[in-house]
């Protein structure tokens, strides 16, 4: 894919390639960070860190081990989750609880205004999970909760949550076009 070629050129210090890469991945990176972090100003900060890290660490990308887009989004997700956790630890818990009260995580997917194709497809596949699989996966991925917090919120044993997460991810794989 295009991002792979660009990232390799970026690793060689190519500023033009970075601008192109930015055009290609800033939307996915910013959108993902914002989904997890929620606060717009903080989301911008985290997205900026991630995008700069792409420039700095492009040489770490190994095309033989996965796609660039996947590498980039995995990095962005990790940074976003770290940020939302420290924000929570810093005392935003109440505010967040109010925001979340009675809102199943899945609705966050549905609340997006724009009906993009990929969004519809992911949503459709999430819809095919069992409720517990879906909630376990989305509370962790979209809301940045640890599996212990997820277990607490869903009143499930830890082992069950771990299994639901695994089953949920595997079933997503099947639905989202696992065929070569």
């Amino acid at each position: 894919m295009e991002a792979d070629r660009l990232l390799i050129r970026v690793a060689g210090g190519d500023h033009m390639a970075f601008e192109e890469l930015y055009a290609l991945v800033s939307g996915p990176v910013f959108g993902l960070v914002k989904r997890v972090v929620r606060d717009p100003a903080q989301s911008e900060e985290v997205a900026q860190e991630v995008l700069l890290e792409l420039w700095r660490s492009a040489a770490r990308f190994d095309p033989g081990r996965g796609s660039a887009l996947s590498w980039i989004l995995t990095l962005a997700h990790r940074r976003a989750v770290d940020r939302v956790r420290s924000a929570r630890a810093a005392g935003e818990r109440e505010q967040r609880e109010a925001l979340r009260a009675g809102t199943p995580a899945f609705d966050h997917v549905a609340e997006e205004v724009e009906a993009g194709l990929e969004r519809e497809w992911v949503r459709r596949c999430l819809d095919r999970l069992t409720a517990l699989q879906r909630e376990s996966v989305t509370l962790a991925y979209y809301d940045g909760y640890t599996y212990r917090e997820v277990a607490e919120r869903l009143s499930l044993p830890l082992g069950t949550v771990k299994t639901r997460m695994r089953d949920g991810l595997t079933r997503l794989r099947e639905c989202l076009g696992g065929v070569a």
């Binding site: 800033s26 910013f30 989904r35 911008e44 997205a47 900026q48 996965g66 996947s70 995995t74 997917v109």
Partner: peptide, 24 residues
């Protein structure tokens, strides 16, 4: 499993603010 997880990111893309581009 990480490849699976990253699929969840595909549904979240949103245009980044123009100022972000300048800063980066």
């Amino acid at each position: 499993l990480s490849e699976d997880a990253v699929r969840l990111a595909w549904s979240t893309a949103a245009p980044a603010p123009a100022a972000l581009r300048d800063r980066v």
